[in-house]
Structures are given as structure tokens and as C-alpha cells.
């Protein structure tokens, strides 16, 4: 009976004035990302049909660009060991991959970047409100990452320019606190590329933020990636780090 009453009150709340979709998206972004330069550790555990395939461990350094406000990322590989020390630089659609064994900085396309696990970092370190126009598509109670029913707003995000990985995203945000609950990421042709559940919220840099994202491949639902983030810290990321010519010099102190 208490649950029924709760649902009733929730529905009544949802029935009130519709919130601004773009503001909801910005609030959700602020929960996923601090609005400043930061670093974090990222562990990706990959499964195929229930079997663990391997783990990728990354350190991510992010700095908001002064013009677009979008994050520029420097990603360093710690594991698997065959990739240890490799770096990826992402500055919008400008992408460079550096291998310390060959000393080569190779320019890669956004499509090529999607081949690697580092691309999954996008579901975390992206300021969606900067690149997408949000539309409130409905109010819905869905199961969240903890399998709890949660009142949410369903937002449909349409890319406002071409320099994005996913042209369209459907995002569910918590009606009570704007926390991201679930995202579905689509290709140009409308194909579902991945589904992400944001969960295990923990206090990080003063805000309850998701510490785990469960990513399900759109074509192969048996391909699952569990992405865990930790050691989120505000950090000065010098402008000079975020360019190709710095990659051979990068070393964390």
C-alpha cells in the first residue's frame, strides 16, 4: 500500500509543469562530470556471452575546451600489458594514438576509435548538453541499474553538429534529482549501438556520481562491458598536454 501511495504521489508530481529538457540534460551532465579539469581511473571488464574476455585499465585526463566547453581527453593505457603506456588524445574529432614502442603518433578516425574500449569512456566524459538539443519525450517509470523502479524523464537528444560519436541518444534521467539512469546511443541510420546503465552512485568531488556503467552492445546483447571509475580528482591539466607533439613526453608524476 505504501508503494502504491508513493507511485500515486510520483505520478502527480510528474503531471505538473514539464521541466526544461536542456536544463535537465545539463544537470545530468554535471552529475557525470565535474565542470573543471579532472583525472580518473577507469577499469573496463569485457564479457562475451557471459565469459570474461579481459580487462582494460585506463587513466583519463580531461580538460574542458575554452571554446566549445567539450572535454578534451588524454587517455593512458595501463592494462592489458601489451598496451601499457599507449596514449590516445581526443580533441573533438581530432584523434591521435601514440605507441611508446614505435614512438609513432598515428592519426585515427572517429570510427577507428570506436574499435577500442577507450571509446566507452565517451559514455562518461562527454558534456552532452554542449553538443545535443534535448527534447522531453515523455515521463516514465523504468528499472534503474539497481533494478529499482524509478520515475524518470525520457529525453531524446539530437546532435547539433556532425562532430559527435552518436548522432542520436535517448537518455533517461531521474525525475527527483536529474541523475542519469540509462542511455541508448544510436548511429546515423538509427541503429542502436549501445545501451548504458549508470549505477552505484557514490559521493565523489562533493556530488553523488555513478561509479559504474554497464554497457550493452546494440548488435550483440551478449557483449557487455562493465566500466568502473575511481579516484576522481580535480586536477590541473595544462593546455600543452592536449596535443600530438606532447604525447611522447607524457608521464604522470
Amino acid at each position: 500500500m505504501r508503494n502504491a501511495l508513493f507511485t500515486l504521489l510520483l505520478a502527480a508530481g510528474l503531471a505538473q509543469a514539464a521541466p526544461d529538457a536542456q536544463q535537465l540534460l545539463a544537470a545530468s551532465d554535471a552529475i557525470r562530470n565535474p565542470g573543471q579539469s579532472f583525472s580518473l581511473d577507469n577499469t573496463l571488464i569485457e564479457y562475451r556471452n557471459g565469459r570474461e574476455q579481459g580487462q582494460t585499465q585506463l587513466q583519463i585526463y580531461a580538460r574542458p575546451a575554452s571554446d566549445s566547453g567539450q572535454y578534451r581527453n588524454l587517455i593512458r593505457f595501463l592494462a592489458p600489458l601489451r598496451d601499457a603506456g599507449k596514449l590516445m588524445l581526443k580533441n573533438g574529432n581530432e584523434l591521435w594514438f601514440y605507441d611508446p614502442a614505435s614512438k609513432a603518433s598515428v592519426r585515427i578516425s572517429p570510427q577507428q576509435r570506436l574499435l577500442g574500449q577507450a571509446a566507452n569512456g565517451d559514455v562518461m566524459t562527454v558534456n552532452l548538453a554542449r553538443d545535443y538539443r534535448a527534447r522531453l519525450d515523455g515521463e516514465e517509470i523504468i528499472q534503474d541499474g539497481e533494478r529499482q523502479a524509478r520515475a524518470s524523464y525520457r529525453l531524446v537528444l539530437q546532435a547539433s553538429h556532425d562532430d559527435v560519436t552518436y548522432p542520436r541518444i535517448t537518455l533517461w534521467v531521474d525525475a527527483a534529482n536529474s541523475r542519469p539512469i540509462k542511455g541508448q546511443f544510436y548511429s546515423d541510420s538509427g541503429r542502436l549501438l549501445k545501451t548504458a546503465y549508470y549505477r552505484r552512485f557514490q559521493l565523489q568531488l562533493g556530488v553523488q556520481r555513478p561509479s559504474e556503467t554497464v554497457i550493452i552492445d546494440g548488435l550483440d546483447p551478449g557483449w557487455i562491458t562493465v566500466m568502473r571509475t575511481g579516484n576522481l580528482a580535480a586536477r590541473d591539466i595544462p593546455e600543452a598536454w592536449l596535443q600530438r607533439d606532447y604525447l611522447p613526453r607524457f608521464r604522470v608524476e
Binding site: 580487462q55 592494462a79 541499474g145 550493452i216 562493465v226
Partner: peptide, 13 residues
């Protein structure tokens, strides 16, 4: 997928 994630164990390098 969520059930699988519940049992995932990180092996930090």
C-alpha cells in the same frame, strides 16, 4: 547484463 555486472571483479594493474 546487470546481473553479470554485479559479479564482476576488477583486477587492478
Amino acid at each position: 547484463a546487470l546481473a553479470l555486472a554485479d559479479s564482476a571483479v576488477s583486477k587492478p594493474q
